[in-house]
Design a protein around this nucleic acid. Structure first.
Ligand SMILES: [Zn+2]
Ligand SMILES: [Zn+2]
Ligand SMILES: [Zn+2]
Ligand SMILES: [Zn+2]
Lengths: 162, 162
DNA sequence: TCTCAAATGTTATGATATCACATATGGAGC
DNA sequence: GCTCCATATGTGATATCATAACATTTGAGA
């Protein structure tokens, strides 16, 4: 569950570990992981693909945790601003972070066929982009790096993806 | 007008050259640069920041070139799909390409203060992202690279940006 | 207990994007 | 010229994503 997320893994364990990590981080930093926020994080963790805000809201509504858009957007704001989840700009959707609590710049590999999303690390200040920025005097504060393509499974097997 | 767009430049010449390059490319490739498409390109070229689809539509409406969203979205689809313009996912906005007709992966430097946008080149298959992708068997087809920060002017002068 | 900040509930609205179907427009073949 | 057909456009309706505004609740600390 470290950098790339296309392999099979013990998902139940993966979710539990992530929740525990977020709980610990909230404890340490005096953050409130309220029921709605926690549930949204769980919903995101249960899938390794990205979820739209309104899809999450559908689940919350069924469970009686909220029925209006601001509920889910506020929970997502909390999770994203503290690095527990990320927004995939390309999909207008959200995904749980695989390194919660660690300061990092995420990069995403998005399968256009099965919608799986893997989180990797990016180093925006290096490479061509970093050089272009420093050459021109631009100061990078934040970066969106999202690659679209085919995941290992969808690339190999022609018919369909698991 | 090559890689970074924060410097001063002869803007009129810049627009004319870009239009000419697109015209030439359309001529060569049997593409129809119709009045609406051409006008949308001009509108984008006249600004070096990104424009929302509905902002462009406002201009078209005044000029009698179209009043409904599909008009501008279809023109933008044409321009983007042929590489004459790019979508900035982070801003849900569009910008004219600074290397029209050339096959390239754009990367953007977006000033969060004055909204200036510069286009640079990215090489998504290199660097950490490329390594993560090839390690896992992911095949990158397309990439979104957008850095947010402060442009040279906004970084230096505290008060405001030209 | 009082006070205040943080969080939530709720209504309405704004912003972005697409669907569906009708109507031109213009070139290829006859 | 005319027919056929692909491409492009016109237009109304609707889908999708996100926030504003304000009332209410909750809970920690003075
Ligand atoms: Zn992350
Ligand atoms: Zn796949
Ligand atoms: Zn470009
Ligand atoms: Zn600036």
């Amino acid at each position: 569950m470290d950098t790339i997320g296309f392999e099979q893994h013990d998902h139940k364990r993966c979710v539990q570990a992530a929740i525990a990590a977020v709980e610990a981080h909230c404890e340490t930093h005096r953050l409130h992981l309220t029921p709605v926020r926690r549930r949204v994080l769980e919903i995101l963790l249960n899938r390794h693909s990205a979820l739209g805000a309104y899809e999450i809201l559908d689940t919350l509504r069924v469970e009686g945790l909220g029925s209006q858009p601001p509920v889910v957007y506020r929970a997502l704001d909390f999770l994203v601003s503290h690095g527990f989840a990320h927004k995939i700009e390309r999909l207008n959707a959200f995904i749980a972070c695989t390194h919660p609590g660690q300061d990092h710049t995420p990069a995403f590999l998005i399968c256009r066929r099965c919608d799986a999303v893997a989180e990797a690390h990016a180093e925006p200040t290096k490479g061509m982009l970093g050089r272009a920025a420093s050459d021109s005097g631009f100061v990078i504060e934040q970066a969106v790096v999202e690659a679209v393509g085919l995941c290992p499974r969808c690339h190999e097997g022609a018919p369909s993806c698991a």
